[in-house]
């Protein structure tokens, strides 16, 4: 019984760490590879979570004062086709990603020319705006009461007490797919241009690169990934309201994960997510005031300080070479051969 409890806790912990790994991978595309100072992760997190929730939640029930424009009720809808697999989950995930990508396109077209801290302020502002829109526009997504009854994926396959194991497998598969896709996309000449832009926008422009277009593409890709993370979060917790997307747990902890793990390294991003989430979740068992959330955040801050002092590039740090499709070093003729 004791063992079972610990195992269940660890599985729940792993699900959250995996979901945060996905956010961190998205942020790594923005900051680690392109130098886009996005401190509005929470905006895409919220948008992804709300999109997926609204697409899949049942039609609102007026008797319960539920008030949102659109309960897509996808599970019931797509159940009609009955293709043997639950398509609705994929549709919801991709839909959440697409909405975030589209939002990034709209925001990015007007703001992505801004450099460094200017972009940071804009993204922070937009993330807060998204939160306040969902809070105040009650017709949109039930306002401060939030959305509940968010369906479980493959909920009837296993008994409720074993469901977390199944969901862990699902989020792991999504993480692996995203990791492989991002690695492959970044370690191409496309990713090399992003890195050049991160290092010096003027040099990139002087080398004939359309800096605006590349930055916009990177912004959209990162936002797409964050949207999928948000969707997974919604189906894991199965209740979201505007308070869920507080900047502390929806933006800054993700930054902490990337800094600790190693910006510019996708493995580092995942390692950082597990490390920081481990500290954050683990410290809640400390006795007395030590388990106070504010104190736990101090612990996360302390971890950042220690890592920055000992390993400024993060635990894993950046990989030196990015041209994966070029000839491996040993194939290159030695100097003056």
């Amino acid at each position: 019984m004791e063992f079972q409890g610990i195992l269940n806790y660890l599985v729940g912990f792993a699900i959250m760490a995996v979901i945060y790994s996905i956010f961190t991978l998205g942020l790594n595309v923005h900051w680690g590879y392109t130098g886009l100072f996005n401190i509005g992760v929470a905006g895409f997190f919220a948008l992804g979570a709300y999109t997926s929730a609204l697409l899949t939640t049942a039609t609102p029930d007026p008797l319960k004062f539920e008030d949102y424009i659109f309960g897509g009720n996808l599970p019931a809808l797509l159940g009609v086709f009955n293709l043997g697999i639950d398509l609705w989950f994929l549709v919801a995930l991709l839909g959440a990603g697409a909405v975030c990508g589209l939002m990034a396109l709209i925001i990015g077209s007007v703001t992505i020319r801004l450099r460094g801290d200017y972009l940071a302020i804009v993204t922070l502002g937009i993330a807060e705006s998204v939160r306040y829109i969902f809070l105040n526009e009650k017709w949109l997504a039930n306002g401060s009461k939030g959305l509940y009854r968010i369906p479980k994926y493959l909920g009837d396959w296993v008994s409720p007490q074993h469901y977390d194991y199944l969901f862990l497998v699902v989020v792991l598969i999504v993480l692996v797919v995203i990791y492989v896709a991002v690695e492959r996309t970044i370690k191409s000449p496309w990713g090399r241009v992003l890195k050049a832009i991160r290092e010096d926008e003027l040099t990139a422009a002087a080398s004939g690169k359309n800096v605006f277009s590349f930055k916009l593409q990177s912004f959209m890709l990162g936002a797409f990934i964050m949207g999928i993370g948000g969707a997974l979060y919604a189906h894991n917790i199965r209740f979201i309201d505007p308070r869920t997307f507080d900047p502390l747990l929806a933006t800054f902890i993700i930054w902490a994960m990337l800094m600790v793990g190693g910006s510019g390294n996708n493995k580092g991003a995942i390692l950082g997510a597990f490390t920081v989430w481990g500290i954050w979740a683990g410290t809640q068992f400390l006795p007395g005031f030590l388990s106070d959330p504010n104190f736990r955040f101090i612990m996360v801050g302390l971890l950042i300080v220690v890592v920055i002092l000992l390993r400024p590039g993060g635990i894993l740090g950046e990989e030196r070479k990015i041209s994966a499709s070029a000839a491996p070093p040993n194939k290159v003729a030695p100097p003056d051969a």
Binding site: S188, P189, W190, R192, V193, K195, A196, R198, E199, D200, L202, T203, A204, A206, S207, G208, K209, G264, E318, R320, K321, I322, S323, S325, A326
Partner: peptide, 22 residues
């Protein structure tokens, strides 16, 4: 204005236009 955290080789490989991989 070299690209500091990129290798010398990659500083050059990023230059050519019309790369399919871009």
């Amino acid at each position: 204005r070299e690209l500091k955290r990129m290798t010398v080789l990659e500083n050059l490989m990023v230059v050519p236009s019309h790369q399919t991989g871009e």
